[in-house]
Every structure is written in C-alpha cells, then in structure tokens.
C-alpha cells in the first residue's frame, strides 16, 4: 500500500532541485543546467520558452505561470481560491509544514481552479502546483476540484486539468483517500452530462491522482518525459527486487501501453487544446451534419 510516492519536503522547496528553477539571481546572466543535454541555458531564455530546453526537456512549471501560458490574456478568473486545508487529524507537524509551504510557494493549496478562455473558447481549468507539497491531494484539493466539475456541469463547460502529484496527502489520512472517490463521482456526473474533460499529465503524476481523475479524461494528454504511474519506482523495486528500465513510467511508456491519447510538448498545447475545445463546441456534444 506504500504506493504514495511523496518526495522529500526539501525537494519541494529547494531552488534548482532536480528540475526546479532557481529564482535567486547572481551577478551576470544566471543560467540553469539542463539535466538532459547538460547545456547551460540562460534563465531569461528558459522563461521565454516556458521552461522548455532547446533539447526538448520540460522543466517543472509553477501553476500560475502555466495558466499565463495557456489562457487568453486576462481571461482567468480564480474560483475557490479561499479554500485551504486544516489539520483534521491533528497530524503531528502538519500545520507547521503547510504554513512553511504556503510561505515558500505563495499558494494556499496544491491546486488552482478557475474559469478561463483559450483562443476564445470558455472552459473550466485546474492546474495542480508541484511547489505545494508536490501537488499532494488532501480535502481542500478534493473539494476545489469537485466544486469545479460541479460548476462546469452547471454552466455546461468543458474542464481541462493539469495534474502533477505525488498522490494522496497522508497527513489527512482517510479524508485524502476519499477525495479520490469524491472527485471521480463529480467527473462522472460532468461526463454523463455530455461534457468534455481533458486531463494533461505533467511530471510527476502518480499515486492516488493517477488512480482517479488523471486517468478519467475523455482525452488524456501528457507532457514529454513526464513520470506517470500508480506505484512509486522505489516501492516497485522493493516489492519486485528488480531494477527498472529508464523509460519505465515515462509518458512515452504509458502511451505505448495504451493508457494516454497523445504526448504534447508545451509550445503546442494551447493550439491543440483550443482545437479540441472547438471540436467539442466548448464542452457540448455537436450534432453532426457533415457540413
């Protein structure tokens, strides 16, 4: 059951971690080394290219930066931004941890929800935040995403959701686990109303998020090279005592096994999402006339 692949707390916050981007600037043009091609990239260029290296490597991206990249300028209206986790189980250290993360990330919770437009098409959008406890899913994340699907069903809108998560948030115990069922039920209702849901899996999407709404899209997309899986690699290695191939649980691997529709690089996402939204008429199912 130890499939929840939480990353160490320090990794969530440290700047310039495995694929974090340093914010502190030294004298001269600050650079960031690409873990794939090992070239140094000037930070200004990296930011301009939405954190994609010229070799194609996708660095992790903060949720609000992603929203700026995707949504028509000025179109994003945040919903449920006031919701945040309590410490319902009085879990030791949780309150302090959340406060530290809030201060460091500038976010209240591990997902940002709202309405937006992409090339004029209205939609509901949620983007999970890797810089907030690696997108871990507790009651507030569950409540926000569930409320968004209900809002989308009421207003007959499509939902596009970007996932990044280590899984359910263990500090909220069973309440976190139940969010998987709660969100899934809301996704089902939204889908049964004939509305479109596109999930886009980013690095990493694992555990209880993979085993619920990440895998429930009508169309499931993923960024190149993203880790997508249920059990954590370490858990699998411990269970099976086998070392895992490098490409295991990468989005290319998941595509090959038939569990996602396509891999889409960041520069092409906005255009593809706009086209998919148009095809589905902003979420409604069209009457096909052939004209």
């Amino acid at each position: 059951m130890a499939w929840i692949n939480f990353l160490k707390p320090k990794n969530q916050l440290e700047e310039g971690g495995r694929s974090g981007v340093p914010i502190q600037e030294d004298a001269g043009e600050p650079e960031k080394k690409c873990p794939n091609c090992h070239k140094n990239i000037p930070l200004s260029r990296l930011w301009a290219d939405n954190l994609v290296c010229s070799c194609g490597y996708h660095f992790r991206m903060k949720a609000r930066q992603r929203i700026r990249m995707l949504a028509d300028k000025g179109s994003f209206r945040e919903l449920y931004g006031q919701m945040e986790a309590g410490n319902p189980l009085d879990f030791p250290g949780y309150t302090d941890k959340v406060e530290t993360v809030r201060a460091a990330s500038g976010e209240r919770e591990a997902v940002i929800c709202g309405t937006a437009k992409i090339q004029g098409q209205s939609l509901c959008l949620f983007v999970m935040e890797s810089y907030f406890m690696m997108g871990s899913m507790g009651s507030a994340v569950g409540e926000k995403i569930t409320s968004l699907f209900e809002y989308a069903a009421r207003h007959r809108l499509a939902v596009v959701g970007f996932t990044v998560s280590g899984g359910a948030r263990m500090q909220e115990g069973l309440l976190s686990l139940m969010q998987m069922a709660k969100i899934s039920a809301a996704v089902k209702r939204h889908g049964d109303a004939g509305l479109l849901y596109i999930s886009v899996l980013t690095d990493p999407t694992t555990g209880g998020v993979t085993a619920s709404f990440a895998m429930e899209g009508d169309i499931i997309l993923a960024e190149p090279g993203a880790t997508v899986g249920f059990a954590g690699k370490r858990v699998i290695e411990q269970t099976t005592r086998k070392s895992l191939p490098k490409e295991f649980q990468k989005s290319e691997f998941v595509l090959e096994h038939g569990f996602i529709d396509a891999i889409i690089a960041r520069p092409n996402q906005r255009k593809l999402l706009a086209e998919l939204l148009k095809i589905h008429d902003g979420g409604r199912t069209n009457e096909w006339s052939g004209l």
Binding site: A2, T210, F213, G229, I236, T239, F248
Partner: peptide, 16 residues
C-alpha cells in the same frame, strides 16, 4: 505494485 501491474494500467483500472 509490480512492473506488470503498471504496464497493464493499475491506476486506470482503479480510476475506472
């Protein structure tokens, strides 16, 4: 939690 379970979509199966 095995390689085979991942290859055959453990997350997708639970989600469904």
């Amino acid at each position: 939690c095995t390689i085979g379970a991942e290859e055959r979509g453990q997350g997708q199966a639970i989600a469904e």
